[in-house]
Design a protein around this nucleic acid. Structure first.
Length: 414
RNA sequence: GCGCCUGUCGUCAAGCGGUUAAGACCUCGGAUUGUGGUUCCGAUAUGCAUGGGUUCGAAUCCCAUCAGGCGCCCCA
């Protein structure tokens, strides 16, 4: 036997028995997002590396160590690690700024990140996401969050926790960063190595460090005071307050998490995550926020935007496994020609029908029927002569013969 | 990139230095030449991730490699 070739580490086959779940995620996405006026967009799976370097941010782990990058014809290309940058690129390139705002887009598809696989984390995984361009008001943030919650509800996921925070605008955030650095300066030598790096690169990400010694430092009153302080400027605070009002009125439950810092550089003001307790350590099913400077950073007009993405594998692991659908009928026959004709006739009328292509013995065919179909459609010598089909209900055992032309009505009865 | 754990049939597994490598499910065949899902019988690993080593003897112990899982980090 030749050597077997395996799937690549961190990738998975989506097998026939699991595909129904994916259909549910996708069809609900289309259904719910359409109600809010979102149109689907499909962008390429690879893009210029620079798009992600500039878009996602070159201080992020995603760009620094997790990208699948390759060279072709002296161009550096990268398999998309997320899709916001790609959608923004397309928005700019296709002149969507000329469309009447808001421009609402949604997408689904595979993303690629070179990370160590574990529960809820693969190297090729799938996201559904939405992006809304052109509205700076908190109504946009609210609609997008509401949309996420309603999509999850439509999947039967009602009790997930929404966590919310505001990062402020670049101006007030810089001031906040400076304050954090200042108050942590005396402790610098006691911080873990990662935190010492983050101190310079991105002080905001210091705050949720899980190393015990760092946690202890952050517990100190004078440091907590800075962390918990409402550093954001008046305008940002008003925006955040407005958002909270909408969510309250719309009965969206949320908790404020001051430590919530999305790891992507482009976020400002609103950031949020939706988490589940049933997912192990990778517990976020949804993450998103506002990114008002990304369009400009990628060469477009200054355009406010909000969006989020959900991990489809994580969603699936929260959903019950749907039962395999049974055929409407399985034809049991000794005559392949007759079986073919009947099968095609019924398929043409919209029914799901199979028969035994190997022409096995009668009992074997019936056994197969009982496994894959609601009923056996028995089409033997006698029935062929009489122009009938014996319909056997495989759960009750009940069997009645009908003229062939009545079959569609009989099958239609469920 | 770091830490811990695990690799025995398509799947779930027993075995813990000497066995003929249990068992169950699935699949296939038969009992049953037109009546299944219940039952009964039978088939299916010269093989224990791979390569070395220790031993009279290795699926069992040791080392390496590979693969998988989980955690850190990060994120969906």
């Amino acid at each position: 036997m030749a050597k077997i070739i395996n799937v690549i580490k961190g990738t998975k086959d989506i097998l026939p028995q699991d595909v129904e779940q994916w259909h549910i995620l996708e069809s609900k996405a289309l259904e719910i997002f359409s109600k809010y006026g979102y149109k689907e967009i499909r962008t390429p799976i690879f893009e210029a590396t620079e798009l992600f370097a500039r878009g996602v941010g070159d201080t992020t782990d995603i760009v620094n160590k997790e990208m699948y990058t390759f060279e072709k014809s002296e161009r550096s290309l990268t398999l998309r690690p997320e899709n916001t940058a790609g959608v923004v690129r397309s928005y700019i390139e296709n002149g969507m700024a000329r469309l009447s705002a808001p421009v609402k887009l949604w997408y689904k598809g595979p993303m690629f990140r070179y990370e160590r696989p574990q529960a809820g984390r693969q190297r090729q995984f799938h996201q559904v996401g939405v992006e809304m361009f052109g509205i700076k008001n908190a109504t946009a943030d609210a609609e997008v969050i509401l949309l996420a919650v309603n999509y999850l509800k439509s999947l039967g996921l009602n009790d997930l926790e929404v966590e919310l925070n505001s990062l402020g605008c670049p101006t007030c955030r810089e001031a906040y960063k400076a304050k954090i650095k200042e108050v942590l300066k005396p402790e610098f030598d006691n911080l873990c190595e990662d935190c010492q790096n983050r101190y310079e690169k991105n002080p905001l990400r210091l705050l949720d460090c899980k190393v015990e010694s760092c946690k202890a430092i952050f517990e100190k009153p004078e440091i907590q005071k800075v962390i918990q302080s409402d550093f954001i400027c008046e305008e940002c605070a008003a925006h955040f307050a407005e958002l909270k009002t909408y969510l309250d009125k719309l009965n969206v439950k949320y908790t404020i998490n001051k430590l919530l810092v999305r790891g992507l550089d482009y976020y400002n003001r609103t950031v949020f995550e939706i988490k589940s307790n049933n997912l192990g350590s990778q517990n976020a099913v949804c993450g998103g926020g506002r990114y008002d400077s990304l369009v400009r950073n990628l060469g477009g007009e200054d355009t406010p935007a909000v969006g989020w993405a959900m991990g489809m594998e994580r969603l699936n692991s929260l959903l019950p496994v749907p039962e395999l659908e049974l055929l409407d009928g399985y034809i049991v026959s000794t005559s392949p020609v007759e079986a073919f004709e009947l099968a095609e006739d019924l398929r043409d009328k919209g029914f799901k029908v199979e028969f035994d292509l190997a022409n096995k013995k009668f009992t074997k065919q019936l056994e197969k029927a009982s496994k894959v179909a609601k009923r056996a459609l028995i089409l033997g010598e006698d029935e062929i002569k009489a122009g009938t089909v014996a319909v056997k209900n495989l759960s009750t055992g009940e069997q009645v013969s009908f003229p062939r032309n009545q079959l569609p009505q009989v099958l239609a009865q469920g």
